[in-house]
Design a protein around this nucleic acid. Structure first.
Lengths: 253, 253
DNA sequence: CGTGCACTTGACAAAAATCAAATTTTGTGG
DNA sequence: CCACAAAATTTGATTTTTGTCAAGTGCACG
């Protein structure tokens, strides 16, 4: 985590996969989009904020006055849904994204945040007031282009998430989810020997859209079938790669 | 449709809900983001293309060399998923979005389109080469900002779609879908007396993530319960508004 | 005015949600 | 460092919903 910490002083860091094809391998890598100058200029209008684990960073519907750029830690974005059961309302939370260092969040529509965001771990982030950001963007076309790149990346992620949700086998969904985490780690250049899950079981369940019980059973099933080795609740390792890819549906374009 | 047709000559039209709050009602409206000048300049680098119903506009993985802006017609974006059943592969198509006039599509990652797009009706669109667009963007900060606005709007839509997919009641999903179509019509300033579905049942099924049979049953169920009046396969009318909102989960923020 | 294709409908099996309870972890104060 | 309480997770039994397979039906288009 040393590298991440050092990112702080340099200013906001935005990582994403490019829109245009890279000239050379490796492909599928996320890059730091901002240059030294741009980071410094953004740092000038940003402040560093910290949140404890479980802290709510903002709430759906709040007046959106800033965007955030994660320096360290992980957050989840969720929407509360009054998914009532016939017999009485039932708290349901849908997680629309997990965000990591280098991600940007604070999307708004008509001046209000469209989802709530909560820290899953202690979080350090840059807080960039929207007004300042807008004027900064209007004088730096390249910076704006990088924001577009990041948004395209987010949109792609959201589409993959939706795709995952359409599978009607919990096992498939879980496998796809793990594959996404793995690819994310790979894209960030981290080791993919083991997959690390910063979120708990119920957050996984809320992301893949199944019940907690079902998610738990799916983990056990993968372990029993020897597809996965579960070191502890946050670390798993793919043992049977072909079965894993098979379950995830070979969509590994 | 006359208005839509007249949009052509003026140049590309991008419609979206603003990021910042409008000063006055009505809220939730989509606006034309581009000014006359900007539209004319974009028109200069664009060409108008036509597609017949069912034509494939581009295919997932194709080299992405242009983005499209719909003048008239409707398209669907989809990903083919090898969602195999235990007993043999089974063609599955997941629809990630329906796009209408004023929408922009052609999102790419590393130079390749991330989904396939097909015309659901005859379509007329502007085709804007990416290279030209990039240089245009780099000299017009406001234009770039509008693109960001549009992307935020798309991202929001994608998140709502994902949210819809997490409901485990087909009835709920269908209702939410109809609600989205209705809101879309409202945001465009069209009449919401009746909801018009330009897509067929199987496309609805692929969007809401259930089987065709189940979707059909859900329509019948809504009609039987007198929540909906089904004029024909493409037109429905909400009769029992409160039951409708109830089913959609009162998320009508 | 047929003839396909899109849609509807029915019966049954499979998968997952739900309800409920046991068990493991984690966090806390002594 | 331990005991205890609270939270997170696993597991089991049961019910509900939906997917699947397989016929019908009817609309749309040539």
């Amino acid at each position: 985590m040393l590298g991440t910490t050092l990112n702080g002083p340099l200013g906001p860091s935005i990582r994403a996969i490019d829109i245009c094809a890279p000239k050379h391998p490796p492909y599928g890598q996320m890059h730091q989009l901002l240059g030294k100058e741009q980071r410094a200029r953004l740092a000038a209008i940003a402040s560093i904020v910290r949140f404890e684990k479980r802290a709510e960073i903002y709430h759906e519907g709040d007046h959106a006055d800033a965007v955030f750029n994660i320096i360290s830690g992980v957050v989840k974005a969720y929407m509360r849904g009054p998914h009532k059961t016939m017999r009485g309302p039932h708290r349901t939370e849908h997680i629309s994204a997990f965000w990591f260092p280098g991600d940007l969040f604070g999307l708004a529509q008509e001046g209000s945040y469209v989802s709530s965001v909560e820290a899953l771990t202690p979080v350090t982030a840059y807080r960039i007031p929207i007004a300042a950001l807008r004027s900064r963007l209007s004088t730096d076309a390249m910076l704006e282009y990088h924001f577009i790149t990041k948004l395209c990346h987010e949109l792609w992620q959201a589409q993959r998430h939706a795709f995952l949700l359409t599978s009607n086998r919990t096992l498939s969904k879980l496998t796809m989810f793990l594959q996404m985490l793995e690819q994310l780690q790979a894209a960030k250049g981290e080791s993919t020997n083991e997959i690390y899950m910063p979120m708990g079981r119920s957050d996984v369940a809320d992301y893949i859209g199944t019940s907690l019980a079902s998610t738990s059973r799916a983990f056990r099933s993968l372990a029993t079938r020897a597809v996965l080795q579960v070191r502890d609740r946050r670390h798993v390792k793919v043992i049977d790669r072909s079965a894993f890819e098979e379950l995830a549906g070979v969509t590994t374009v």
